[in-house]
Design a protein around this nucleic acid. Sequence first.
DNA 1: AAAACGGGGGC
DNA 2: GCCCCAGTTTT
Length: 203
Amino acid sequence: MYVEEVISRLKELYPNGYFHVNRDPFYLLISTVLSQRTRDDVTIPTTQKLFSVFPTVEEMAEADVDEIQELIRNVGFYRVKAQRIIDISRIILQDYGGIVPDTMNELLKLPGVGRKTANCVLGYGFEQDVIAVDTHVHRISNRMGLVDTSDPDETEKELEKVVPRDEWKNINGLMVLFGQNVCRPVGPKCDECIMDDICPKMI
DNA sequence: AAAACGGGGGC
DNA sequence: GCCCCAGTTTT
């Protein structure tokens, strides 16, 4: 089947997947918020720097917003993100006893958390069967004919119909790597792509 | 449905 | 110097 062949080749290309990410739900939550609309090669060092100063939910919740702003000044939307990081930390501390909630419904109540961010936390942090649809997953799924829609939420639903359930949580990491290195938003490297014999764009 | 938030990196 | 980027909220 086409989709299973695509996943098989992606796994062969990126056998280590996303092993480098910290799987702690709170770390994942904050790092994912920081990475919204900002390249992860920029946000990863910034996230490490932020957590070296404020390692816990408690310390993050009591941090001064100006100090957080200064620490994350190099990432996009840093002012609003700094405020959201504090607000998220305070809510998790006060309403959830310092434990990141493990349901979509509760995660969506947090400021700056939408379906994509929530699914990253649920998938990477809590090992749940979810598909986190970001711009890479959305673009590649449409380019390769796995889905056909301009709505990322529709892409998530359509992918759930065609991707085997035990691969759901792997889709995001594989397609992000593939999307950054090969099937890029602009100027995809189709001439050196391992999908060249099955991708609809190439046939 | 469209605007707004935004500094960094590739070219 | 110009264009785009691991989205979400507000208008």
